[in-house]
Design a protein around this nucleic acid. Structure first.
Lengths: 348, 348
DNA sequence: CCGCCTGTAGAAAGCGCTTTCTATCGCACG
DNA sequence: CGTGCGATAGAAAGCGCTTTCTACAGGCGG
């Protein structure tokens, strides 16, 4: 029924070994033989059996990309870049096509572990974990254990936007400098004269949330300005909408609101407008990430730019082969403040 | 080095066959034996070798989800729903965990074919193709041939939002009723008194673009209203922004613009506002898809709702096992007009 | 003119699992 | 008390490929 290597070999009148060598291109084969084999492959419409080949070679060409939320452009952009880099990066060797696949964890450590096991089963060539994680020590340890087992088995592990596992040099880590980005943003607001700043934080217990909040507090502390009200919530527009109401209820004369994310910031803007407040006239608003929607908003959103595309590409390259990291395995990715239309000076 | 089935068998003092049966749960094993085996698995931290098991069983638990653009929420939402449905749908059998992976084709038929081949190599359990395709007959034939080969090899093929391949019952097809949705939308505009309607179409040569345009024209023709100017462009905000300028240049007294997509519609709104035009006071704008951002806009966007989440879930179920389709393998998914704030009556 | 190296191809031993096909044990039944 | 069947477990034959290890040419230096 299905065409096998042996069938191709028979048709090309060579041994299976030779066909395998032609297909993998890692052993000298005479040009005439090669052509005969390739012709037979085409004639029979042969497709290599992946499991068989992975089994025999003890390697596979699967690369897993784990993201928290596939519907969120933050991850979509990084994943897409990584996938392209992985597909393109394979031009070196013969049939070195890698299959980059993205898996949606929904931010759940359980699903993350499940996917890691599934990828471990498949003897994946590499795994990229994108986005911050929960900070539960137990989960962290479980994930770290799993990752180190994967690394032991020869799977490359790349962390992109997730803090490196302490004392574990197995994985390459690309970390966003959330803290500095957040600090700059708050400094910007302070420079504009804001003193009562509300903060819409991301989901609680997440590394990203904590790092950004730390930067925010640093800036406040340095300026001797007391911290304003804070609300936690998911990275959704609705969450920002609700948070704005809550913040205003707690502190009616807020002059600025920092959001966990551009999407959330847009929700905040909408809520503010519904109450008749002008942005940035009455209240300044700022986001984070510099997602495409930040530019599309009216007025365009002041935010902190994260080079998502570049980070994804770099992660992809690290996952395949390309340039190695500095010996400690970490690389910091800068976050840059982008001032646009939603922040302005406090009204005299 | 690595732990194998045999190692587990030795530790549990049973045969490898028994371990395999415990793990797959498709053969009676005495409770005491089962426990012993499970204990050994846990002790040794054993992970099944996927390639080996796929090879021996001639099946795999990989499900491929091909999308045009992973960074576009349209696909993100469907893919995420499908992935959840696939992961959850496996509760029936024992270790029936399926690995749903999404592959980003970037709308390119070549990459699509490449991914299909890669999935064919892996002997994927199912493949879901999401989103419209190019209409080039040659590409279409190539894809159809590949799909039918996949189906022959036992891979389930599900088309979600892509027109079924003519005369090919291999694949289940979920088709969005773009045409009716588009017609309703234009009828709505006509009812509001609009007579000069600009149209920002999606990328040329795509099935989705054509179907929507056909619906638009049907409504126009039925009302005896001449077609307004049309511009093609990708599904990006910037594209809508540019298109609005182009449309207005061609026909300065347009009173309404229909966009290919909500993202594009938002770009159109921004461009209009920049020229000092009020939406919907001066010009009405409408989108398509009802993406989350449609609700977030100010005013909220009038659009055509597509049940993306439901469609993705259904596709996932079809890909695994669940309910069969009607015998012809097709199922139409309705598109429903949602009137919100960006469309209004023509100014007296 | 011979042995040896280089270039190329074949033989065959697995890779780690699934799955018939058998074998064994107990027990109910005639 | 012999027979047969149900419930379990083992033996062993692959699944289709990769990859040593071997084999056989020619061609060259000695």
């Amino acid at each position: 029924m299905t065409v096998t290597l042996a069938d191709v070999a028979a048709r090309a009148r060579v041994s299976p070994a030779t066909v395998s060598r032609v297909l993998n291109g890692n052993y000298p084969v005479a040009e005439s033989t090669r052509e005969r084999v390739l012709q037979a492959v085409a004639d029979l419409d042969y497709v290599l059996n992946g499991p068989a080949s992975s089994l025999a070679a003890a390697t596979s060409d699967l690369v897993g990309v784990l993201v928290n939320d596939i519907a969120d452009p933050f991850f979509g952009i990084m994943a897409s870049a990584a996938q392209t880099a992985i597909g393109a990066g394979s031009s070196g060797r013969g049939g070195g096509e890698k299959l980059a696949v993205v898996c949606n964890t929904g931010g759940s450590p359980e699903r993350e572990l499940t996917y890691l096991t599934l990828l471990q089963r498949q003897r994946a060539a590499a795994v990229i974990l994108m986005g911050g994680s929960l900070e539960d020590p137990e989960r962290l340890a479980a994930t770290a254990a799993k990752l180190s087992r994967l690394a032991d088995a020869g799977t490359r592990v790349v962390l992109c936007g997730r803090p490196p596992v302490e004392g574990d040099a197995h994985a390459a880590a690309l970390v966003f400098d959330h803290r500095t980005g957040a600090r700059r943003l708050t400094e910007h607001l302070l420079a504009l004269g804001h003193r009562r700043i509300g903060y819409v934080a991301g989901p609680a217990d997440r590394t990203t949330t904590r790092h950004r909040m730390e930067g925010h507090r640093e800036a406040l502390a340095a300026a001797g300005v007391p911290e304003g009200p804070t609300v936690h919530g998911p990275y959704e527009r609705a969450s920002g909408h609700a948070a704005a109401a809550e913040l205003l209820a707690r502190e009616p004369d807020l002059t600025a609101i920092v959001a966990s994310n551009d999407t959330v910031a847009l929700g905040v803007c909408a809520a503010l407008r519904e109450r008749g407040l002008d942005v940035p006239g009455d209240v300044s608003v700022a986001g984070f990430d510099d997602l495409p929607c930040a530019l599309d908003a009216v007025p365009p959103l002041t935010t902190v730019h994260l080079p998502l595309h570049e980070a994804g590409t770099r992660a992809g390259h690290l996952a395949t082969d390309a340039a190695e990291l500095p010996p400690d395995g970490r690389e910091t990715i800068p976050a840059e403040l982008v001032v646009r239309g939603t922040t302005g000076a406090v009204r005299g």
